[in-house]
Design a protein around this nucleic acid. Structure first.
Length: 573
DNA sequence: GCCGTTTTCGGCCCGACTGTTTTCAGTCG
């Protein structure tokens, strides 16, 4: 079982305990442990073997022994008992907005509801309004929430949510009464999937802004609307919420709305320890006086901390680093000097080599590797050896046109075949400037098989980089089942770069794995895998992952000058 | 269930909004 699977079990335990009416602090302990396991970069299985599970924050004696039991036997008596006591379908009912554990338990115990379908039927039959504390309005509200739930498809990809949020921001910034409008939430933290769009507004007229936002044409339905906060469902199914605060309180408001929740809890605990109380409105002092914070940075400074970049605000050690003045200098889009993975119309790209190069140059890049697909990837127009050699001519021609503005290199995205062999012979690979090897097919091999396949590719002396190492798709197919610790170890040994593929559907390696790879000393690269000039703009999503992985420019190969990179690859310092 | 420059026991972030209530519980972020 990998970390994600173990974490999912503990999340489920938390849900079931909550429905059973268990004390909220015990439930939260399981939730915290689950989140912590999910963001642990080392595999829990390895930590269990080494007896180091309790090093994971939020994992104590009890949870550690449950993990041990789960990993060694594939079962957990405690969990089995819970599942026997509470219908698992109720976990789906918790997904309905405005239905939490208390209501779910009542629907189950008093009406026999064990699924979303049951709940809908009960609501339609008018059975909910008979329960204590529930009326006709609650019943209708739940029916509306069920409809929204069926429309929604879980979390949205950041690639969809961010552009949509940016369009909203433009509108908001043009609205009367708006002094400042910013993104908060998981979008500002560059998480790979987004539950909803969080917007924070500085304004002296909250009624005007709240009303104006709720009336926007892209708002399909208002879920709740108060004096300073409004929550809506947008056309297209995304949810958005907006907070309005006065300018002089905007610092703490933006901090609060950015989260993560776990990070905010740590911050507020720290405030408490200093005798302060922190909320979105500001700090409250022991004498009851308020300390207002207009600039977000000052909220951190009051607590004796350096400002924490939003991408790090996940309770993954950033508080300790901020306290020690040891926060990393994170890589930015402006640090990127080159692109190591781009396609042209020689394979499945939509633009000529020169067009791609011009676009890269306009973005300020100084080198570009054209890496079209290799021969066996027929669906993507993979290049035969002859075509690959012919392509070199066109690259040379384009280079002459470009002059010194941008250096073009010939690479290839070479298939790693199912048995670990590469799709071009070594003699051909040796002619290329930079070889990327990638998995596209046979992703369902066993872990030993898939791992061995990738290791074999890395051990080929001509291979410089592994493209989208796991092959996973965000919210889509699982990647290959790999022993990533072993992959990282061999990447380090063979000087093979590992890609952070910036396409928002891939984001592969992800933040947690990229952080681990970097901790172990691997060199990463942020690539767009561009198939047309506009795809080069996707690099910001890769930068988001890299920043979430705590990477600075030295850890990112394409933030290096080209000569340094080539020297490193050829075995130099 | 976890955890400790207040603690190995007794705490565990803080506030907005809704609906059903006459003062609050539930949910959410």
């Amino acid at each position: 079982m990998d970390n994600r699977e173990v974490a999912a079990v503990f999340d489920r335990i938390a849900d079931l305990l909550e429905i059973q009416g268990e004390a909220v602090y015990r439930v939260n302990a399981y939730r915290r442990a689950a989140e912590s396991i999910r963001s642990t970069s080392e595999e829990v299985a390895a930590m269990a073997t080494a007896g180091r599970l309790q090093q994971i924050p939020g994992v104590g004696e009890a949870i550690a022994s449950k993990i041990d039991e789960l990993l060694s036997s594939g079962r957990m008596a405690f969990y089995d008992k819970l599942v026997a006591a509470v219908p698992e379908g109720l976990i789906g009912v918790l997904e309905i907005q405005d239905v939490g554990p208390k209501k779910a338990a009542r629907f189950w115990k008093e009406l026999g509801v064990t699924s979303v379908d049951d709940l809908e039927a009960a609501a339609r039959a008018g059975k909910l309004r008979g329960l204590a504390g529930m009326g006709e309005k609650s019943e209708t509200r739940i029916l509306v929430s069920i409809e929204a739930y069926r429309r929604r498809s879980g979390r949205a990809s950041i690639g969809v949510a961010l552009p949509s949020a940016e369009r909203l921001l433009v509108k908001l910034r043009g609205m009367p009464g708006v002094r400042q409008a910013e993104l908060g939430g998981s979008l500002r933290r560059w998480r790979e999937t987004i539950g909803d769009i969080d917007l924070v507004i500085a304004s002296d007229d909250s009624a005007l802004v709240v009303g104006g936002f709720a009336a926007l044409p892209e708002v399909r339905r208002v879920r709740s609307q108060g004096e300073t906060k409004v929550s809506v469902e947008l056309e297209g199914g995304l949810q958005a919420q907006l907070w309005v605060h006065p300018v002089e309180r905007f610092g703490t408001a933006w901090q609060y709305a950015t989260g993560s929740q776990a990070h905010n809890v740590r911050l507020r605990e720290r405030a408490q320890a200093m005798g302060l109380s922190l909320s979105e409105h500001g700090f409250r002092q022991p004498d009851g006086g308020e300390l207002l914070i207009a600039q977000e940075q000052h909220a951190y400074n009051v607590l004796g901390l350096a400002w924490v970049p939003p991408e790090l605000r996940e309770d993954r050690g950033e508080m300790q680093a901020a306290e020690a003045g040891a926060l990393p200098v994170l890589v930015t889009e402006a640090d990127l000097r080159g692109e190591l993975h781009a396609h042209s119309n020689w394979s499945d790209g939509g633009a000529t080599i020169l067009e791609m190069a011009e676009a890269a140059s306009e973005l300020g890049l100084t080198y570009l590797v054209i890496s079209d697909h290799s021969q066996s990837l027929g669906v993507a127009g993979g290049l035969s050896v002859d075509r690959l050699r012919a392509q070199r001519q066109e690259i040379d021609q384009a280079q002459r046109r470009l002059g010194s503005r941008l250096r073009l290199l010939q690479g290839a995205e070479v298939e790693i075949l199912a048995d670990g062999r590469l799709d071009y012979p070594d003699a051909v690979l040796s002619e290329l400037d930079l070889v990327t090897a990638s998995l596209h097919s046979s992703l369902r091999q066993s872990r030993p098989q898939a791992t061995a396949r990738l290791l074999a590719a890395m051990r080929n002396p001509h291979v410089d980089m592994i493209g989208h190492p796991t092959g996973r798709m965000v919210e889509g197919r699982e990647g290959a089942d790999l022993d990533l610790e072993e992959v990282f170890r061999v990447a380090l040994e063979t000087r093979t770069m590992l890609e952070i593929n910036a396409h928002p559907d891939r984001l592969d390696l992800n933040d947690v794995h990229a952080r681990r790879a970097s901790e172990l000393g691997c060199l990463l690269a942020i690539n767009t895998d561009a198939h047309r000039p506009s795809d080069l703009l996707l690099r910001r999503f890769g930068v988001g992952v890299a920043r979430r992985a705590w990477l600075g420019p030295p850890q990112v190969a394409n933030a290096w000058p080209l000569d340094d990179l080539l020297a490193w690859l050829s075995g130099g310092a």
